[in-house]
């Protein structure tokens, strides 16, 4: 058996806003009718959280359910639990049109943490990141520089960022450069 490794192999920066590889992360993309009744129990079973509503991120420690589109959710869980989760999904979604896919090794998960983390991201994405508009509990899919990314906040100073594995180093370098360039002073610190 080959040993699974993350694209960034634990890369991390120091500084007042730190960028770090979060290592292996189980991720399952589920496409289906999000109003399907049994989805509630399934989400509870997989991540201990309700089905996320529009643009919602339901985060529970190292698990999460993220709203990706009107017919798509992303479930996060420990990497070793993915196979088991897939069989539980197959059971719960039996006879219901759906697509469940293990995308763990197609993606990278990074963390951006520090007092001006919000500005580190805001400099790179064409979205409104004002604390009144975006905060913990929400998820955004957009662009970071030239690549597609999704991110959410776990607290006022911490972002988690998902991108494709093939562009993980670009994402890291970009976030590192944005962090090194320092705060802009546009948003209040620590929000």
């Amino acid at each position: 058996m080959s040993e699974p490794v993350s694209a960034l192999r634990g890369r991390a920066t120091s500084g007042s806003v730190q960028v770090s590889d979060m290592g292996l992360q189980g991720m399952i993309s589920l496409r289906c009718d999000l109003s399907f009744g049994k989805l509630k129990a399934l989400s509870k079973d997989l991540v201990g959280a309700p089905v996320p509503a529009l643009r919602e991120a339901q985060v529970r420690n190292d698990r999460a359910a993220l709203w990706m589109s009107p017919d798509e959710l992303l479930f996060l869980m420990p990497h070793t639990e993915v196979d088991d989760a897939l069989s539980r999904i197959a059971k719960a979604m039996k006879d219901q049109h759906h697509l469940a896919l293990d995308v763990s090794d197609a993606r990278a998960l990074l963390r951006v943490e520090g007092p001006f983390a919000r500005e580190v991201i805001a400099k790179l994405a064409p979205v409104d990141l004002h604390p009144d508009v975006f905060g913990p509990g929400q998820v955004l899919r957009t662009r970071l520089g030239q690549i597609a990314a999704a991110f959410w906040m776990t607290d006022a100073q911490t972002f988690q960022v998902i991108c494709f594995r093939s562009v993980a180093h670009y994402a890291f370098d970009l976030l590192e450069a944005s962090a090194k360039a320092g705060p802009v002073g546009h948003f209040p610190r620590g929000t």
Binding site: L54, R55, P126, V127, D128, T142, R143
Partner: peptide, 9 residues
């Protein structure tokens, strides 16, 4: 998504 989206997205 019920949100405003930039042309580059």
């Amino acid at each position: 998504c019920d949100r405003m989206v930039d042309e580059t997205d």
